[in-house]
Computed example of a mutant assay.
Amino acid sequence: MRRLGGAAAATAGSAAVLLLLLLAALVPHLLAPFDPLAIDPSAAFRPPSADHWLGTDESGRDTYSRVVHGARESLLIGAAATGIGLGLALLLGVPAGLGAGGGPTGRRLDFGIGRILEVLFSLPGLLLALVFIAFAGPGVGTAVVAVGLGTAPGYARIVRAQVAALRTSGMIEAAVVLGRSPARILLRHLLPNALGPVLVLATLGLGQAVVWASALSFLGLGAPPPAPEWGAMLSAGRIYLGIAWWLTVFPGLAIVLVAAASTVLGRSLQRRTVGA
Rank of each mutant, 00 (worst) to 15 (best):
I84H: 05
L22Q: 02
R167V: 15
Y155S: 08
G78Y: 03
S42F: 13
S49Q: 05
G85A: 10
R72V: 09
V163K: 00
P138D: 07
H29F: 14
S74N: 03
A100D: 03
L126D: 01
I158H: 08
W53F: 15
V144P: 10
T142F: 00
G141N: 10
G60T: 02
V145G: 10
G87C: 15
G103R: 03
R160L: 10
V144D: 11
P138C: 06
L75R: 00
S59W: 02
R72L: 10
D57R: 08
A96F: 04
L75W: 05
D35H: 08
V131H: 02
F132L: 14
R61N: 03
P95Q: 09
A43M: 07
D51P: 01
L22G: 15
H29L: 13
P36V: 09
S122T: 06
P36N: 14
A80K: 02
I158M: 14
A89I: 09
G125W: 03
T63V: 15
G103H: 04
R61F: 08
S169D: 05
I158V: 14
P28N: 01
G106R: 06
A136M: 11
G70S: 11
F132T: 04
S74L: 04
G78L: 08
L127Y: 02
G55V: 11
L54Q: 11
A156S: 07
P47K: 00
I84T: 04
G60S: 06
I116D: 01
R107G: 14
R157D: 10
P48E: 14
P104C: 05
F135P: 00
V119K: 00
A164Y: 11
R66F: 00
D110G: 10
A43D: 09
L30D: 00
A96T: 04
R115K: 12
P36D: 12
D57F: 06
G139S: 06
V159E: 03
S59P: 00
G125N: 06
V147D: 07
D62W: 06
G103F: 03
T56F: 11
D62Y: 05
R160E: 11
G78F: 08
L86P: 09
V119P: 00
T142S: 15
G148Y: 13
D62R: 03
G139Y: 10
L75M: 13
A134H: 05
G125C: 03
A81H: 10
H69V: 05
G106W: 03
T56C: 07
A152C: 06
G101N: 08
P95S: 09
R107S: 14
P124T: 02
F45D: 01
L123E: 00
E73L: 15
V145C: 13
G93K: 05
P124E: 04
G99D: 04
R160Q: 15
P33N: 14
G148M: 13
P28A: 03
T82V: 14
L86V: 15
L123R: 00
G85H: 07
V147C: 12
H69D: 06
H29I: 12
